[in-house]
Design a binder for these strands. Structure first.
Length: 927
DNA sequence: ATTTCTTTACTTTTT
DNA sequence: GTAAAGAAAT
């Protein structure tokens, strides 16, 4: 054991500059704010600070909380920390590190029993929307609907859908209920939760809105019936737990990353994590926060930049503790040109304290900018320049050095399809895409049924997928049974509710139990014998898996094989396996879910949070009046912490619940390994690029309506400033090269809905002198590139020749001065890629339509161009059009299913017409 | 009850 | 121009 050998902290400190060192070695018993602009070594400082706490102050890792913004950031911190602490024997895995949400969920799992929070899983956004829909459909009484309808327009306005300006015309106020906008309501509820306001508290507020208050409490009740917590609940209920009981008294230091993006409840959580302690009449508080005001881009999620001030204020006013503020201003990431440009963008904003970031890189190249004539052309411009960069002689860049950052996710689509054509390999930085696949979702739903007997949503989704004969009528019946068993008529619950506000268990019902009693005919239903049998089978699948899981996880040792076996059992007996059939991709995705589940480590006893002696604290004293049935329940409800026997059986599923919740919180690793083998361009939203960096960054779509986004245009100045900070975050991701582009479209062009982009972004006005019109305008600048990147330029670097080729190809690629689309140099046309897919799909489809005829279809699509070209499908006799060997999809677009699937409906539809109508070659337009 | 055709609304950004 | 919801038709 080398744990006693002390690793010296000095070598670590030696790698820091003066400011960084000041921050790292700052007093650990007063609050510390580190203001770190982009590229100033924020993560480095944070990591060094943790190392300092571990080594110098000898704080055990399990007593340190670190909150990061994403799982990725947490992972990176651990990796870097491990490197620093190599051989010290300090187990960095014991650090309490993760996003606010995941840490909160862990705390709820461990200490939630006292507040009635056991057996909960985290709801996805879709679940939340579903719950709200159920509320609106069936939980609001006619009386309340009448009240809602009588509300003045002003009170309804924040909740009704799509700004339907009731321009006279009667507006059917009489009979119809107002159409409420789910998104808006969820946003409002989320906002309340972000400000730590519970439903019953809100109801008591004087200026509470009746509608919101009603829906909020009904929504919460339904969530809890399912034993689900939404994202905000994780924070809200964690705060409730830790503010009432000192369960976290073991925490000795708290670090918060990306502080500028914390909201009120997160600020309050931070205060609770870092409780002020009085030690020998000295007030102490050990907390370090890191952030940058200019990078605050989450106001839409109720982040408040004011938290910096609030923190200072909180400590000085309430605890007379002065926060130490350290500002880092040396930038190690970007060149001076990129930095100066970014700084100028921000300077346009009034009321901002000037930042003086100093680049540590001398030589530099101007950012490039261009205005293109259409959206497609812009995408081609990006693709062309990527190709140009990686194919420079002795290029300092490969594809993985390049990122394309966009404001809105939908902008990626054009890029994708253009990249497929150009054979530009790319990945979309989005961890969750995998978990939103249909088959993955289905499998996860089955796991949810197993892990959470209350998860009505999951049960309802699973019960008829694969088909078991439960149609909409049967589903509705089950829903009815669920809600009947969920709301007992005894008013004992109301009594408890008054004493213990929002104790979630009060409306608990076991969905699985309900189904069981239906199948045993204890609850009468209108199901026929067939349906009952089908239901029985379904229950048997869930119960069978539950048994296997229990066995697999009962021991203290983790048992991957047994877990895998349980998973397979569920996959097969549920019929999912058969349903997915021979689709190789889907099967692999299910395998991946299994792998993730097995990989997910069961937090062993020592790693988990310390136990907390509940009996030290009073359990609310409740007088119970009512029938004995209710009494038992109340006793059960209040006695949760003491129930060891019951707890044990639940433990097996606790593991599964953690896993499922972390999946929802996007906390799983992306286990794909091919990233290393094939360097790929990253396409990401700006928000997703936070904290990352690349040598080359493209920011397309710099037009009014895109960045700044259209919804901010007529908004307040704050809204515009948030957009500006978005741009700032994007541009400061770049190390060496920055490419900016805009396009303009004509007002009357085939744009639906969205306003056309007519002007370049206001953020660029007046900055032209800082920008170049094309990359490498002269020989010198090209040479700079090589020096800057530390690459040796080729001996025979012929600048003139390179530029000539660049210009010639530019016209060909970007401007497309040839109209022979299939034969443009360097292009793979949509034809090549989709031909094979088309043939496969056409064959399948035609066979399905005419099963008696086993021969291949008479006609297959001859040519289908990919988006963004007009998807025109022509049919030709099959013998004339046998796909050639080269018509396989390039490997680099495996991930890019969107690019191909955008036309999928058209592709699928076209062959469907074959047997009926396509007697002669027929052109199938797509409306 | 499922498939097929028609209509509609939709685009922030994410834990 | 597309998904997703709604309507109509097998």
């Amino acid at each position: 054991m080398t744990s006693d050998e002390k690793i010296p902290i000095e070598p670590i400190l030696d790698t820091l500059n003066e400011d960084q060192r000041r921050a790292v070695t700052a007093c650990t018993s007063t609050p510390l704010q580190i203001k770190a602009g982009p590229g100033t070594g924020k993560t480095k400082v944070l990591v060094a600070r943790v190392a300092y706490l571990l080594l110098k102050h000898r704080i055990p890792p399990q007593n340190i909380i670190v909150t990061t913004f994403t799982k990725k950031a947490a992972k990176e911190m651990i990796e870097r920390l491990d490197k620093l602490l190599q051989g010290s024997g300090i187990p960095t895995t014991k650090l309490l590190i993760g996003t606010f949400h995941s840490i909160s969920y862990r705390i709820i799992q461990k200490y939630g029993a006292a507040e009635g929070l056991t057996g909960f899983t985290v709801a996805t956004e879709k679940d939340a929307a579903q719950v709200l829909e159920n509320v609106l459909d069936s939980d609001i009484s006619d009386k309340d609907w009448a009240l809602i309808q009588s509300l003045p327009d002003a009170a309804l306005a924040p909740f009704v859908a799509g700004a339907v300006d009731s321009d006279g015309s009667g507006d059917t106020d009489s009979g119809t209920r107002p159409k409420l906008d789910k998104k808006k309501i969820l946003r409002q509820i989320s906002k309340l939760k972000a400000h730590a306001i519970f439903a019953d508290e809100y109801a008591k507020q004087r200026d509470a809105m009746f509608l919101l208050s009603l829906i909020y409490s009904l929504y919460q009740r339904r969530l809890f019936e399912n034993r689900l917590l939404d994202f905000d609940d994780c924070l809200l209920y964690c705060h409730k737990i830790i503010s009432r009981r000192p369960v976290l008294s073991f925490v000795q230091h708290t670090l918060v990353d990306e502080f500028q993006d914390t909201n009120e409840i997160q600020l309050q959580l931070m205060f609770e994590f870092a409780k002020v302690k009085k030690v020998e009449s000295e007030t102490k508080c050990s907390v370090t926060i890191v952030g940058d005001l200019d990078q605050s881009i989450y106001a839409f999620r109720d982040a408040q930049v004011g938290n910096f001030e609030k923190m200072l204020d909180h400590f000085s006013r309430i605890h007379s503790l002065q926060c130490l503020v350290v500002t880092l201003s040396q930038n190690y990431r970007s060149t001076s040109d990129i930095l100066a440009f970014s700084e100028h963008v921000m300077r346009q904003q009034m009321k901002r304290t000037q930042k003086n970031l100093v680049s540590q890189l001398q030589s530099s190249l101007k950012p490039v900018r261009a205005t293109l004539e259409s959206l497609d052309e812009e995408a081609r411009w990006v693709a062309y320049h990527i190709t140009h960069l990686v194919s420079l002689p002795q290029s300092p860049f490969e594809h993985s050095d390049i990122a394309v950052l966009v404001r809105s996710a939908y902008q990626t689509r054009v890029l994708e399809s253009e990249f497929v054509k150009h054979r530009v390999p790319y990945t979309i930085v989005k961890g969750r895409a995998f978990w939103e696949r249909k088959e993955v979702l289905a499998m996860v739903d089955y796991l949810r049924c197993v892990a959470n007997e209350n998860d009505q949503l999951a049960f309802l989704r699973c019960i008829n997928y694969p088909k078991r004969g439960f149609g909409p009528v049967a589903i509705a019946e089950i829903e009815k049974l669920f809600s009947q068993t969920a709301k007992p008529s005894t008013d004992i619950r109301e009594q408890i509710r008054l004493k213990l506000s929002d104790s979630p268990q009060l409306n608990a019902s076991l969905a699985l139990q309900t189904l069981r009693s239906v199948s045993r005919k204890e609850l009468k239903s209108s199901f026929g014998a067939k349906l009952l049998e089908s239901l029985n089978k379904f229950i048997a699948v869930i119960d069978g898996t539950r048994k296997l899981i229990k066995e697999a996880l009962n021991g203290t040792e983790s048992n991957p094989e047994a877990l895998a076996a349980a998973f397979d059992y569920l996959y097969e007996t549920s019929g999912l396996k058969r349903e997915l059939g021979d689709d190789e991709n889907k099967r692999l995705n299910i395998e991946e879910v299994k792998a993730q589940l097995i990989l997910f480590e069961k937090p062993s006893q020592e790693d988990s949070l310390p136990d907390f002696a509940e009996h030290q604290f009073e359990i609310p004293d409740i007088e119970v009046i009512g029938d004995s049935e209710g009494e038992d329940e109340v006793i059960e409800l209040l006695n949760l912490s003491g129930e060891q026997t019951k707890g044990e059986t639940n433990d097996a599923f606790e593991f599964l619940r953690s896993f499922l919740s972390l999946v929802v919180l996007y906390e799983t690793e992306n286990s794909s390994k091919d990233h290393i083998n094939h360097p790929k361009v990253s396409i990401s939203t700006i928000h997703g690029a936070k904290g990352l960096e690349w040598p080359v960054v493209f920011i397309p779509g710099l037009g009014e309506g895109l960045l700044p986004a259209s919804f901010a245009l007529d908004g307040t100045e704050d809204a515009i400033n948030e957009e500006r900070r978005c741009f700032y975050v994007a541009s400061t991701r770049a190390k060496t090269l920055l490419y900016l582009s805009t396009y303009t479209e004509k007002a009357g062009s085939l744009n639906w809905g969205r306003k056309p982009v007519e002007k370049q972004s206001r953020f660029l006005t007046g900055l032209d002198p800082m920008l170049a019109q094309m990359p490498f305008e002269n020989e010198q600048s090209m040479k700079k590139l090589y020096t800057l990147t530390g690459t040796i330029p080729p001996q025979d670097l012929d600048y003139e020749k390179l530029q000539k080729k660049y210009l010639r190809d530019y016209n060909l690629y970007v401007k497309q001065t040839t109209d022979d689309h299939d034969n443009r140099p360097g292009f793979v046309t949509g034809t090549d890629i989709s031909r094979l897919t088309l043939l496969q799909k056409a064959t399948k489809s035609a066979k399905r339509l005419a099963p008696h005829d086993n021969k291949a279809p008479k006609y297959v699509p001859k040519r289908a161009t990919c988006a963004p070209f007009k998807p025109v499908v022509r049919l030709a006799p099959v013998e004339n059009q046998i796909p050639t060997a080269k018509a396989t999809a390039p490997t680099n677009c495996i991930n890019s299913t969107t690019a191909l699937s955008t036309t999928s409906t058209n592709i699928l539809r076209a062959p469907a017409y074959i047997p009926a109508r396509a007697k002669h070659k027929r052109r199938l337009g797509t409306r």
